[in-house]
Amino acid sequence: MHDTTHHALQRQRRQVIWGLTLIAFGVAYLLQRDDGDAVVRLWQYWPWVLVAFGVNNMLPPTDGRRFVDGLSQVLFGAWFWITIEGWWGLNFGNSWPLLIIVGGLGMVLQPLAHRYFPRHQEERS
């Protein structure tokens, strides 16, 4: 697959994800328009936008860097969701070291991912 085709597919998928996100928020606001508190509570779901974009980066066609970046976005969105919800007693103040772990994991996985996604590396050379 040519690099221009790869970028075109990525751009189209990004546009679809943004469109679906806007549709979902618009429908949610429309359904809750009489309840101001419900509209405010909808914003607690914004980490799922990060997860959606991360999954988009992980889907083929992709390369090693985009896959690891997508995985990092998914983990970052999950961290936000978990801390907003307060699961397992985690909050922003006591769980920030998890972000350091995600950063280190990304650095470790980057070279490994390039082994499993060599096709796009070779095309760029």
Rank of each mutant, 00 (worst) to 15 (best):
T5D: 12
T5N: 15
H6T: 09
L9F: 13
Q10K: 12
R11Y: 10
R13V: 07
R14V: 11
V16G: 11
V16W: 15
V16S: 03
I17C: 11
W18N: 05
W18Q: 08
G19M: 08
L20Q: 10
L20W: 09
L22P: 05
L22V: 13
I23W: 11
A24E: 08
A24G: 04
F25C: 06
G26C: 13
G26T: 11
A28Y: 04
A28I: 06
Y29M: 14
Y29L: 15
L30Q: 11
L31E: 09
L31C: 10
L31F: 09
Q32T: 14
R33S: 05
D34T: 06
D34W: 03
D35F: 00
G36V: 05
G36A: 06
A38Q: 06
V39Q: 11
V39S: 08
V39C: 09
L42W: 07
W43Q: 11
W43I: 05
Y45S: 07
Y45F: 15
Y45C: 10
W46G: 04
W48C: 02
L50E: 07
V51E: 04
V51D: 02
A52P: 00
A52V: 08
A52Q: 04
F53S: 04
F53I: 02
V55F: 08
M58D: 00
M58C: 01
L59H: 09
L59W: 06
P61L: 00
P61F: 02
P61Y: 04
D63Q: 10
G64V: 01
R65I: 09
F67S: 02
V68H: 03
D69K: 12
G70S: 11
G70K: 07
G70H: 14
L71N: 01
S72L: 12
V74I: 10
V74R: 06
L75C: 14
F76Y: 14
F76H: 14
G77Q: 10
G77P: 01
G77K: 08
A78M: 15
W79H: 07
W79G: 03
F80A: 15
W81P: 06
I82T: 11
I82K: 07
T83L: 09
T83S: 02
T83K: 03
G86S: 04
W88P: 10
W88H: 10
W88K: 10
G89I: 01
G89R: 15
L90W: 11
N91I: 02
N91V: 02
F92K: 09
F92D: 02
S95D: 01
W96V: 03
W96I: 04
P97W: 06
P97H: 06
P97E: 02
L98Y: 09
I100E: 00
V102C: 00
V102L: 08
G103W: 04
G104R: 11
G104H: 06
L105S: 08
L105C: 04
G106P: 00
V108A: 07
V108G: 04
L109A: 03
L109T: 01
L109K: 05
Q110D: 06
Q110K: 13
Q110I: 05
P111I: 04
L112S: 06
L112H: 01
A113S: 11
H114Q: 08
F117T: 02
R119M: 03
R119S: 03
H120A: 12
Q121I: 13
Q121D: 13
E122M: 15
E122N: 12
E122C: 12
E122H: 14
E123G: 08
E123H: 13
E123S: 13
